[in-house]
Simulated assay, not measured.
Amino acid sequence: MSVWAMIRRWFDPAEVRSEGTTPDYRFSLANERTFLAWLRTALALVGGGLAVAQFLPGHRLRLVIAVSLFALGALVALRGVDHWSRSERAMRLGEALPPSRFPAILALVITLGATALLIATLV
C-alpha cells in the first residue's frame, strides 16, 4: 500500500468502510477509544515538551529534550491514527488485528527521556 493510499484512508471514512463487512459496533468503538488514548498520550508528550522548554534551566539538553518530546508527540499521534485505520480494516475483513511493537518502543523512549530529564535536572 502506498503512503498516499494509507493517508487517504485516515481521512476518508468511506474508504475504510468500502472493504469487508461491518464489525460489531462495540469493537469499532473500542478501537476508537484506543485511538483517543493514543491522542491523549501525544498531547501529554507535547505538553511535557512545552514544560521542559519553559522551566528547565537554559542549557543545550533542555532544547534536545523539548524537541524530542515534540517530535515523539507528533509520531505518537500519527501512529495512533495509522493503528486505528489498520485495526478497523482488519476487523472488517475478519483478519487478526495488526501486531505492533510501537508501545514497547514508546515505553523505552520515554524511559530514556525521563532519565535524560532527571540528569538535566540534577546537573
Score class of each variant (00 low, 15 high):
84 W>T: 00
65 I>H: 08
54 Q>M: 05
86 R>P: 02
56 L>M: 12
63 L>I: 10
49 G>Q: 12
119 I>R: 07
92 R>I: 14
59 H>N: 14
19 E>Y: 13
51 A>S: 08
44 A>L: 15
48 G>S: 12
31 N>G: 06
22 T>F: 04
80 G>C: 08
90 A>I: 08
62 R>H: 09
42 A>L: 07
16 V>F: 03
15 E>M: 13
40 R>P: 06
21 T>S: 15
113 G>M: 15
70 F>A: 11
120 A>H: 09
33 R>L: 06
80 G>S: 06
120 A>G: 14
18 S>R: 13
88 E>R: 12
35 F>R: 06
93 L>V: 09
116 A>E: 02
69 L>S: 04
39 L>Q: 10
58 G>L: 12
75 L>N: 10
47 G>R: 02
1 M>N: 03
81 V>K: 08
107 A>T: 02
50 L>W: 07
95 E>Y: 07
28 S>I: 14
111 T>F: 10
3 V>N: 01
85 S>N: 04
52 V>Q: 01
114 A>C: 10
103 P>L: 12
72 L>Y: 09
63 L>P: 04
110 I>M: 12
101 R>G: 14
121 T>C: 06
58 G>F: 11
30 A>I: 14
94 G>R: 01
11 F>N: 09
12 D>H: 04
102 F>N: 01
121 T>A: 12
20 G>E: 10
93 L>E: 10
104 A>T: 04
97 L>N: 03
82 D>L: 08
119 I>Y: 13
81 V>E: 00
25 Y>D: 12
72 L>V: 07
82 D>V: 01
96 A>K: 09
20 G>N: 08
50 L>P: 02
75 L>V: 15
121 T>Q: 07
114 A>V: 14
119 I>G: 01
86 R>Q: 14
10 W>H: 15
59 H>E: 11
31 N>A: 08
89 R>P: 00
34 T>Y: 00
64 V>L: 07
27 F>Y: 12
10 W>F: 15
19 E>D: 13
107 A>Y: 01
